[in-house]
């Protein structure tokens, strides 16, 4: 998605299953379906809840008939923990939900195309604490099935819900390791300074 930002510059390699994702011969459309993304501010389409979830499967032709599509939608909503809340109003606009519900809708939307990895860009920063708790619980549920990478500015959140943590500073990767190790005995000095609150 970085090509939509004109001033973005990337050095080094990022690989998914040993394939460089910036390889020009790589099909971006497939990649983006395999790597789902959830944005900082919830951005449901101004369509019905059903159509929001069904959008991805429809464009990729993942369902050969409508009952299959119904099943995919129901599954995704269920996995995102929204099914019980919206199952009676699937035709309502996606934008009519509360902030926390919208974010879970976006997560359900990303799940609907059966990704392998889900990227989340500060998924809870626009939410109140109760919604945050719900989303964090959801992430805990999902981690059994998908590889999830979260960007967060909250160290507490990182410590709460992650198994591995990477610390970036001004565009450089400083340290990466097991969460417990990063937070109790970081190897790099910058990491230590950040964790103890000397800056940031």
């Amino acid at each position: 998605m970085n090509e939509t930002i004109p001033t973005c510059r990337v050095t080094g390699h990022i690989t998914l299953d040993d394939q460089d994702i910036y390889d020009p011969t790589l099909d971006v459309v497939r990649l983006r379906a395999r790597v789902g993304m959830v944005f900082q501010k919830p951005n449901p389409f101004p369509k019905s809840i059903y159509d929001n979830i069904a959008y991805g499967p429809r464009i990729h032709g993942l369902a050969s008939h409508s009952t299959e599509l119904d099943e995919i939608v129901a599954n995704s909503l269920d996995r995102a923990g929204l099914w019980s809340e919206v199952k009676d109003r699937l035709d309502d606009a996606g934008t009519a939900l509360s902030g926390g519900q919208q974010q879970r809708l976006c997560i359900a939307r990303a799940i609907a195309v059966d990704p392998e990895v889900i990227l989340m860009d500060e998924p809870c920063s626009a939410l109140d604490p109760i919604a945050t708790a719900k989303v964090e619980a959801l992430i805990e549920d999902l981690k059994g099935r998908y590889a999830i990478a979260i960007v967060t500015h909250s160290m507490q959140q990182a410590a709460r819900i992650s198994q591995k943590t990477a610390f970036f500073h001004l565009g450089d990767l400083i340290e990466i390791g097991e969460t417990k190790q990063i937070f109790t005995s970081p190897k790099e000095e910058k990491t230590r300074d950040y964790i103890t609150g000397r800056f940031g």
């Binding site: 998605m1 939509t4 459309v29 497939r30 990649l31 983006r32 379906a33 789902g36 993304m37 944005f39 501010k41 951005n43 449901p44 389409f45 101004p46 959008y55 991805g56 464009i59 990729h60 976006c106 939307r109 990303a110 195309v113």
Partner: peptide, 15 residues
């Protein structure tokens, strides 16, 4: 139309 809708759609693998 906000760019966030563009981003959401592209992120799902749409052209």
């Amino acid at each position: 139309v906000p760019k966030s809708l563009d981003d959401a759609s592209l992120a799902l693998g749409a052209t």
